[in-house]
């Protein structure tokens, strides 16, 4: 995150408020890890940590794309189906051939881009509600995927070693997957924060009417957000294949809501205008870590979904209560200083 010297009290205040969410998730993560390690020291083993990061990477990648969309006061529910489609499609693409890894990635991202483009055009050009449109494309893409797969599956044996290596190998002890996610996250995060056009995504979500009057190219930005979300879903699809090797048609089924959960837990306001990709990625990491913790603590893994849901509710409720308290505090402060 941009390190800016805090030169005024107001500055510090604003920054604290903005980062409060990232910090509180981080704190929750640390507490969670500490407690779990105290109970079972094997939790913090190299392999354990690696697994968590591997598992979180794909979700975090999707969360980064989803953040761009949600920040503009929209939503992309089709990501899960895009991951499934691309995972299967790229599996078909590589099966029996020794394809270049880069080529596979490009093909996967292209498919994702097309899906994102369709969503983006429908939402930005025809101004139909994003939830409905992406729900529709979710059905359609999923249907296409299932129809194509028709019960077949991709087996690890068909996938070239170079691709599998991408999903499970590492450089300097750091697995590729989280590396890719971090690079993407930092790039998107930096763009959104440091570039004028990046700020426009926030402006659109914060007040669409004002954005129009300010001459912001709303359609273009929303289209971009969807295409980025699609491309990242495509990338995630290929990484899914690389990581698991075996792919059935319903890969990543239901993930769209998992991604939205991660994003919201990560402090991105569902009504747009507020939040960062870092928070969203942390949200993904937290959700994944909880999953692993349950396994380590031998809690019935069935609790995982329930806890994820409760966490999401807790996150938005706390946010809301804080906001209400801030409003009230501001009102009372006004009282003292006079209106």
């Amino acid at each position: 995150m941009a390190a800016i010297t805090a030169d005024t009290g107001g500055r510090r205040f604003v920054d604290t408020v903005l980062r409060a969410r990232e910090l509180s998730i981080l704190a929750a993560l640390i507490v969670l890890v500490a407690v779990t390690t105290a109970v079972n020291s094997s939790f913090l083993s190299t392999q354990g940590v690696k697994d968590i990061f591997l598992n979180a990477s794909i979700l975090a990648l999707l969360a980064v794309g989803q953040t761009m969309v949600v920040v503009t006061r929209n939503i992309d529910l089709s990501v899960g189906s895009v991951v499934g489609l691309v995972a299967f499609a790229s599996g078909k693409f590589v099966a029996g051939h020794d394809r270049n890894v880069l080529l596979v990635l490009v093909v996967g991202m292209l498919i994702g881009a097309v899906c994102g483009l369709v969503n983006g055009v429908l939402v930005s050009f025809f101004k139909v509600p994003a939830l409905v449109v992406t729900l529709g494309t979710l059905y359609v893409i999923q249907g296409l995927d299932y129809y194509w797969a028709h019960g077949q599956q991709i087996n690890a044996a068909d996938v070239p070693a170079s691709l599998l290596d991408l999903g499970n190998g590492s450089v300097l002890g750091i697995p590729y997957l989280p590396l890719i996610t971090v690079v993407v996250m930092v790039a998107v995060g930096y763009y959104l924060r440091a570039y004028p056009s990046g700020r426009e995504f926030y402006a659109i979500g914060s007040n669409p009417d004002a954005a129009r009057l300010a001459g912001i190219a709303i359609r273009k930005r929303i289209l971009t957000a969807y295409v980025v979300s699609g491309v990242l879903a495509g990338l995630a699809g290929v990484l899914w294949l690389a990581r698991f090797g075996t792919v059935v048609a319903d890969a990543a089924h239901g993930w769209e809501l998992k991604v939205v959960s991660a994003v919201v837990v990560g402090g991105v306001a569902i009504v747009g205008g507020l939040g960062s990709v870092y928070g969203a990625a942390l949200g993904a990491l937290l959700l994944t870590t909880i999953g692993s913790v349950l396994v380590v603590l031998k809690v019935n893994s069935f609790w995982q979904d329930a806890i994820a849901g409760a966490l999401l509710l807790l996150a938005i409720s706390v946010d809301r209560l804080l906001a209400l308290r801030v409003t009230r505090a501001l009102r009372k402060r006004n009282a003292r200083h006079g209106a």
């Binding site: 919201v264 609790w303 329930a306 806890i307 849901g309 409760a310 938005i316």
Partner: peptide
Amino acid sequence: LGLPSLAVTIGTMTLYRGLAYV
């Protein structure tokens, strides 16, 4: 709390389904 129902029910959707598994 004045929360958007979309966000709330995405949460309870996961929660209730999770409880079903529990």
